[in-house]
């Protein structure tokens, strides 16, 4: 694959600076994007494009282990936060 194909396939872009989380501790940054995504989906549906921003952000910031644990909790109804919009 040529370089041109690669740079169009992989966009060097990630979750930006968020003024709500200016500190070294980014735990809440990850959590907020995770809950915001599912709140967004609950309100606007899976295909609503602006929701994807939250998904990209939580994927970039949250360890995969945390994400799968929270996914499991959502499935079991034991997720410790309301995801109602």
């Amino acid at each position: 694959m040529s370089d041109g194909d690669l740079s169009s396939k992989y966009v060097l872009q990630t979750a930006g600076f968020d003024a709500r989380f200016p500190n070294t501790n980014q735990t809440r940054h990850c959590w907020q994007n995770y809950t915001d995504y599912f709140k967004c989906v609950a309100a606007k549906g899976e295909d609503f494009a602006p929701c994807k921003q939250f998904k990209r952000a939580y994927h970039s910031l949250c360890p995969n282990e945390w994400v799968s644990k929270w996914d499991e909790q959502r499935d079991n109804g034991t997720f410790p936060a309301s995801l109602e919009p």
């Binding site: 060097l12 970039s60 360890p63 995969n64």
Partner: peptide, 26 residues
């Protein structure tokens, strides 16, 4: 200061190895 980053890499410490996650392209 974290200057507007182009990629995010997650680094996870385990007993006793490191693991890395690149999830910007999911």
């Amino acid at each position: 200061e974290v200057t507007s980053p182009t990629i995010t890499i997650k680094v996870i410490g385990h007993q006793w190895y490191w693991s890395y996650e690149y999830s910007d392209y999911v």
